[in-house]
Amino acid sequence: MALLEVSDLHVSFPTPDGVVRAVRGLSFAVETGKTLGIVGESGSGKSVATQTIMGLTRGARVSGQALFEGIDLLAMSPKELRSVRGAQVGMIFQDPLSSLHPYYRVGWQIIEMIRNNHHEISKAKARERAVELLRLVGIPQPDRRVDDFPHQFSGGMRQRAMIAMAMSLNPKLLIADEPTTALDVTVQAQVLQVMRRLQEEFGTAIILITHDLGVVAEVADDVVVMYAGSTMEKADRYETFGAPHHPYTEGLLQSLPAYGGERERLRPIPGQPPSLINLPGGCPFHPRCPYVMDRCRAEMPPLFEVGGNPAHTSACWLSRDQVERAALRTKVVGQPLAAPAVP
């Protein structure tokens, strides 16, 4: 049994302009101790999906199932869900600058979380643990910095502090929502390394949300590619990077320097993601797809197995035969995907 199994998740927001359908039939699974990468352009519903699972979206209409160790999080009472939050599932959010409370000391915020779940731990003990956690994520002089306020930390340090807090109760799952987007490249690498080290040490499963496939290539075991609130493609890292099926995945890969041939020339996918209020009929990617066929405009493709591999699925009408697909790619795109060195 997977640690977390989300199936057919729908989330929509009624707004004055119409109903925003942010997540439409999303399904994915996270295995114990593994890392799942969720990739997609801005607005594809990554944050909404993961926050909804933990009951953190307000004013949304939600349906579907999210089984955590076999129990549906979406059907839990607020009290039950609170006991899962923090203790079982730690969360790190997109913007480290605004995710810590500006009026409380960093250490206080970590101690609060520890003592909220373990009333028996003394303040002094919880503080020791907070210092230990800050040391673990690489904050220098943690015994002094524990008394700092967030504004005295740099962006990278705040994100590390968030990781320390999210890991403070040894959760089974860590949901990291673009933990490195707001940071510069060297700090990005450091933060990812911290997360990987913690995962090795504690066996934590991780959902890593990002719109950067490069990050996914480094750390994810499995990859879910999202577009306009739906799953486009699901596969392990090797398949995703070596033999992607969905044209959207292909487009994302081509926008990576390692795939474009010339390192300097990025090729972003032409066009814009669709409005989530007036979604196009059929395949949501069809207005931007270089392979578009008549059928794509009429019918939404379900997730098909690719190349006879049940772990690799793609929501696309193109041939599921890897050889045919590669031939078509050469014909339409004009070049085969350069095989990347997957780390």
Binding site: F93, Q94, D95, S99, L100, A166
Partner: peptide
């Protein structure tokens, strides 16, 4: 609507604590 209020909720704090200790303070 602030991010740090969402953080407080994600920590598993009670709703009262989220509202009075975290939100009202600001």
């Amino acid at each position: 609507n602030e991010d740090y209020v969402r953080t407080a909720r994600s920590k598993g704090l009670s709703e009262n604590r989220v509202i009075y200790r975290h939100a009202l303070r600001s």
